[in-house]
Nucleic acid binder design. Structure first.
Lengths: 111, 111
DNA sequence: CTGTATCCGATTCGATACTG
DNA sequence: CAGTATCGAATCGGATACAG
């Protein structure tokens, strides 16, 4: 999946962050991994019913490539995998939590 | 422009935030409006040279619809407009600044 | 200067089928 | 269970032209 290049000539730091978390489902995935620490593929599917298996897979792969999350594969049948934040990925926690906070405020207004 | 509906059944607050700021250039626009308070259309264009006039216009319109920014039109020739955050839009500042912080950290690592 | 309208190629993403 | 491969419809977004 080709990712958009922002490349603001003045170098806006926000764009670097976007580069990493702007995928359609990435911040939601990160949110759940913050709340639950560890998630299996199927658990993430349940938490994000509107995200197709294909999309979930693509987004997880990109996050893994960017060293934000890591995957642990158990060589059992049926297969079992676990996803969790890397220590680098954990540096994103304040960003996601700030998004959560704003979302909660927003939801409380619109209800 | 049709926007994606996230609608996680469990109600993840992060999705509400995404609904508002996930447009291709929105958080970058917000970033500049935080730094500069007020920007004209052409100023934003200069700050975001990779964003076409069309896209800039679309993103600004959506942000205005969502009451995040407000536009002031001066009835002069040639036309002059100014964009700034609304007081509601300013509640997003912590989110954007947290993104900026992470982006700065990320850039300092990768240089 | 500050936009909008239209065209059209490029990209996205769900559906489906398939694999270990 | 945990994915990947492929196809095609829908959407996106740049280029261009036009407008107040």
């Amino acid at each position: 999946m080709q990712r958009h290049i922002f490349n603001c000539s003045k170098g806006c730091p926000v764009e670097s962050t976007l580069q990493i978390i702007s995928g359609k489902w990435k911040s939601v995935i990160l949110y759940h991994l913050i709340k639950d620490e560890v998630c299996r593929f199927s658990e993430l599917q349940k938490k994000m019913p509107h995200c197709s298996r294909r999309m979930l897979s693509l987004q997880l792969n990109e996050l893994e490539t960017d060293k934000i999350i890591e995957k642990k594969i158990y060589p059992v049948i049926p297969p079992k995998t676990e996803y969790r934040l890397t220590s680098f990925g954990k540096t994103l926690i304040p960003v996601i939590l700030e998004m959560e906070k704003w979302g909660q405020m927003y939801n409380s207004i619109n209800s």
